[in-house]
Design a protein around this nucleic acid. Structure first.
Lengths: 216, 216
DNA sequence: TTCTTTTTTTAGATATAACTAAATATTAAT
DNA sequence: ATTAATATTTAGTTATATCTAAAAAAAGAA
């Protein structure tokens, strides 16, 4: 498992968190700050290793093995972030670049001893959950959509208002339980927000956002 | 500075510790477990970056800048070793491979905070001195040559017996203050040892080894 | 000094992971 | 249903760091 392969798996894992279905070559290229042609090459390689499923022009999805590898890298990344903040007095905004390097260190013992040394933390300094040895991650806590900020992502898990007029509105917009949302922009004046579901972007009012429960 | 360049600098630094003068292509190849031709390529690269001085067929020596870079990698390696043993309950024989990876993490802040977190240790778990930020290393403590074990290295810093017959013997063998010695083998039966000075190997008795002070 | 052995270097090849430019496939629009 | 626009892939190139095999230089022996 090369460093580059690990970085691609991690990128695909994070993108799958925001988008349903196959992740497009271009989306990966943008995330990895590289070119689509490079992504195509790497996808072939990961596909041969059965870490992703890949259908030409249909995008990629992680296999179970792929998910496990990605989760283990995220586990390492987040544990190192806790170490940097809790033990070495880094601030939460300084940790990312260093953790990007540390996440590629290969040693089962190292990461499990580190986990213990840190007291088996459940979340990293940004509040993101830390996967355990088996790749299981405790869920994000439920919050109202209105509390999310620009660039936050989440999954719709419930509604507060169950009136038929509200639910009809949701149906019309294609908003439903299980859908993944990313907040593209938030208007401070009236708390209306531009959100993205699948590849579609549209704006919703604060009233709407106030009645949708999300898992962050 | 690539990982490979760093590893070569470190290897040359360690070899310079045991041998005087230029370090040969073959010696580096052996240490790096690679081929002489690969070493030649890398030497050219390091030479262009003025990290080593290089004369065809005469071997290489680190420049001041090269020494500084090498010392900073060794500093990182040894500090991480202390971390692994002191904080994560590794045993002294488990740390090397992981430290080989950790030594390449790039972050000034990381290594200086780690240094502080560990209480500014002076030696790693094997007793080797840890260079400070400026590449300065506290000397090894003086020991009798007889106390060294197989594969240990050191510099001759003094003699206990100053009789002319002893000193004459030393002269004849080419043993003198400042010479670098590596213990090639040690015979448990009589504590005689096969040692190497420059590229010459020979055997000395316990009486001799008992009268020579070394800096490890 | 000439020959042999050892050491070192060169030349050419391979693998990884990028890139650019061009070709091809898919989706969207008229 | 074509055409236009977009997305993706292919082909060919580059840089790093290796390697093998062969050539060249230096050191050692006769």
């Amino acid at each position: 498992m090369t460093r580059s392969e690990e970085n691609y798996l991690k990128a695909i894992y994070h993108l799958s968190d925001t988008f349903d279905g196959g992740i497009s070559t271009n989306a990966i290229a943008e995330k990895m700050k590289t070119k689509a042609s490079s992504v195509t090459d790497m996808i072939k390689k990961l596909s041969e290793k059965e870490l992703v499923n890949y259908r030409r022009y249909k995008g990629v999805e992680l296999t179970e093995r792929g998910k496990l590898v990605a989760a283990s890298i995220i586990r390492k990344h987040r544990l190192w972030e806790v170490f940097l903040v809790d033990k070495l007095n880094f601030t939460w905004d300084e940790v990312h670049d260093v953790a990007e390097q540390l996440e590629h260190i290969k040693s089962e013992k190292l990461i499990n001893q580190l986990d213990e040394f840190l007291g088996f933390p459940k979340r990293d300094p940004h509040g993101d959950p830390i996967p355990d040895k088996d790749g299981n991650m405790s869920d994000h806590a439920d919050v109202l959509l209105v509390t999310l900020n620009k660039n936050d992502k989440g999954i719709i898990v419930g509604v507060k208002d169950s009136s038929s007029s509200f639910l009809k509105y949701l149906d019309k917009q294609g908003i439903a339980l299980g859908k993944k949302i990313k907040v593209i922009d938030k208007e401070p004046f009236d708390n209306s927000m531009k959100i993205r579901i699948k590849k579609e972007e549209f704006t919703i009012s604060q009233q709407i956002a106030n009645n949708i429960y999300m898992k962050k």
